[in-house]
Amino acid sequence: MKQLITFPLITALPLMAALPASADGESLYQQNCSACHMVDGSGIQGAFPALTDSDFVAGDLEDLIRVVAYGRAGMPSFGEELASTELAEILGYIRETFNDTDTDLSASDIERLKVTATAKMGREE
């Protein structure tokens, strides 16, 4: 009996790991992005773009990765601030949760696009 119960639990694990909008993505988003883009991704008009129902967020993945990694239009560069796995989690979260867009993104997808040095976030000395 025990074995019968245990079996489906084990097979369920890989399925859970494959869920894109993971709890990690959400907590990483809240931690790193919510001060500007708000807890619900609604942004602040005239300052920080909304990430919900966003053609840009839901659109070309490479463009999105570049903006997050290198910064753009005042957005900080996170490419050397956060690990690629973390960036992948966050991007998965904002696409899945805020834009209902299936996303299969790995750390290596991020790494592949991080070819040149990002803007240094500390001070120039």
Binding site: A35, Y70, G71, R72, A73, G74, M75, P76, S77, A119, M121, G122
Partner: peptide, 8 residues
């Protein structure tokens, strides 16, 4: 103008 990032 959009090529710049700003440091939080």
């Amino acid at each position: 103008m959009d090529a710049v990032s700003y440091t939080p």
